[in-house]
Every structure is written in structure tokens, then in C-alpha cells.
Design a protein around this nucleic acid. Structure first.
Length: 265
DNA sequence: ACCTATGTTGATAC
DNA sequence: GGTATCAACATAGG
């Protein structure tokens, strides 16, 4: 599920793991922890504490201190296509806070921090496309989609010959927009995903930014991008919930894309 | 068996 | 160098 709204919720879950001493690390999943070797993360994290959880786009990273209280490497967490963060409280207490109960095989816990109070932070990810690494390259990401200024949005999004949807999905342009949020936002803005990004007027770009920010806020409040008004209609035979026209489907930016051919221009 | 999937990335070709 | 495209990644579920 993870696009920006889901990742912000996950970051808030990570907040509950702060200031707890790490006594155990399961970093044995070589795909999720790549390019680190098993044991690398354990050595870097054991005995330390997470002290802050940040997010930019779909990436989370945590500031660390070591056992002596000195700054350590940052711990980067990416949820991939379907990862979730679970943080449990001290042993014997209810597992805290996760809005949707997560249950499944232990093998789907791809990375685990165990704290001295008996609680854990887990990256639960059936699909295994999530990722954990030290000192992730956050600078490679564009500005966060929920924070980007109007001026930056105009110059970064409103250029180039790629289809508008591909531009929105480019995390180096703008961080946080995924496939569902892109379709929902373009539908709300009445813009065709096939438009060349550089062909948008300043007015269209400002409106697109306004609609995107509203869609993000709404998704955070309602529990995820899948709650968007268009999303349930993204299926064969689906119709535009505003005008009733049959939606069309195509692959744009190498992702499945649905839109209303009558309204989105 | 075959297809699709809310993401990222490295290779490739302009 | 910048830009754009897409297969590959690992796995589950329809």
C-alpha cells in the first residue's frame, strides 16, 4: 500500500520505537538488507537507540545514537510495494498503535529490532521488496510532495517531454507520489495522464499542486490512497464517478493507468 | 499455468 | 550530461 500517506503513518509508528535500547537485530534477509551483509546492520545498531524518525516521500530514516550517546549512522527504511512497520510495546503489554492488525508468518518479518524492554520494531513484508539500509541517499529524492513550494513545483514538474503521469511518479522530481495517488490526483485535476509535462500552463501546474496536496491530506485522514474516489473504479468496466463515462486503461510510465477520457484533457 | 500488483533501480538508447 | 523507457527484482493472490 505504501505511498506518501501510508509511509507517513508508518513513520508515526516508528516514533514509538524511539529512545529504546536495541539489544537484538535480525538482518539476515540479504535481499531486504542489501547491499549490507548479514551482521553489518547488527553491528551498527546493537546497543544504540533510534532518536528521531524522518520521512521524505516514501522513504523513512531514523537518527541513531550509539551506546555512548554519540551519533551513529542513519537507519533507512523503505516499505517497497507492501511493507508495513509494526512496533510492539514492552513485553507483556498490548502491541501498540498499528491501525490495522498485522498477522502472518514470522518469515514475513524481514527485519527486526528487539529492544531491552522486550518490544520489537518489525518490517513486515510478504512481498520482500521493502528495504533497510544504513545512511540512505535521501538527497537523490526530489522535494516531498506534501511540502514542495509552488515555485519548485512549477519548475520541476512542468518541464520535459515525458507524460505528466510519468513526471509525477519520478521520485527525483517529486518524492511520494505512487501509482494510485497519481491516477486519483490527475482525475481530480481533470488532467490527462498522457499530457506532456512541459505543456502545462502555470495555472494548470498551480491547480495540480493544490489538488495533489489536498489528495495527500485526505488520504492521510482516511487511511490511505486506496480510499480515493477514483480508485474503486479502476477496474475493467469501471466508470467515472463524476460523469459516468467509461474509464480507459493504458500503460503510462510503465504503470497501469486509468482515467476519464471525457473529463481529463 | 498465467496474469497482475500501491516501488525502485540499473541498463540501455536516444 | 540529461532524459526517457523498461526489464528485473521476490512473492502473493486472483
Amino acid at each position: 500500500m505504501p505511498e506518501l500517506p501510508e509511509v507517513e503513518c508508518a513513520r508515526q509508528v516508528v516514533d514509538r520505537a524511539l529512545h529504546r535500547t536495541i539489544v537484538g537485530v535480525d538482518d539476515t534477509d540479504e535481499f531486504v538488507c542489501r547491499p549490507h551483509a548479514p551482521g553489518d546492520l547488527q553491528r551498527a545498531l546493537k546497543g544504540g537507540q533510534l532518536v528521531a524518525a524522518h520521512r521524505r516521500g516514501k522513504s523513512i530514516w531514523c537518527d541513531m545514537v550509539d551506546a555512548g550517546g554519540d551519533p551513529g549512522p542513519a537507519l533507512g527504511i523503505h516499505l517497497g510495494m507492501g511493507g508495513r512497520i509494526v512496533v510492539t510495546g514492552p513485553a507483556g503489554t498490548a502491541s501498540g498503535g498499528d491501525p490495522v492488525p498485522v498477522s502472518g508468518k514470522a518469515i514475513w518479518n524481514r527485519f527486526v529490532l528487539r529492544f531491552d524492554d522486550g518490544g520489537e520494531l518489525r518490517l513486515f513484508d510478504k512481498r520482500r521488496l521493502g528495504r533497510v539500509r544504513l545512511d540512505p541517499a535521501i538527497d537523490a529524492l526530489g522535494p516531498d510532495a506534501a511540502e514542495i513550494s509552488r515555485a519548485d513545483f512549477r519548475t520541476r514538474v512542468g518541464r520535459g517531454t515525458a507524460p505528466l503521469k510519468a513526471r509525477l511518479l519520478d521520485q527525483a522530481t517529486l518524492a511520494g507520489v505512487g501509482n494510485l495517488l497519481a491516477d486519483e490526483t490527475l482525475w481530480r485535476a481533470r488532467l490527462a495522464p498522457t499530457r506532456r509535462a512541459g505543456s502545462l500552463s502555470v495555472e494548470e501546474l498551480d491547480e495540480l499542486r493544490r489538488v495533489l496536496r489536498a489528495a495527500i491530506r485526505r488520504a492521510i485522514l482516511r487511511g490511505g490512497v486506496h480510499t480515493g474516489d477514483l480508485i474503486e473504479h479502476r477496474r475493467p468496466g469501471g466508470h467515472c464517478p463524476r460523469c459516468g463515462a467509461e474509464l480507459v486503461r493504458a500503460t503510462i510510465g510503465s504503470r497501469t493507468t486509468w482515467w476519464c477520457p471525457a473529463e481529463q484533457q
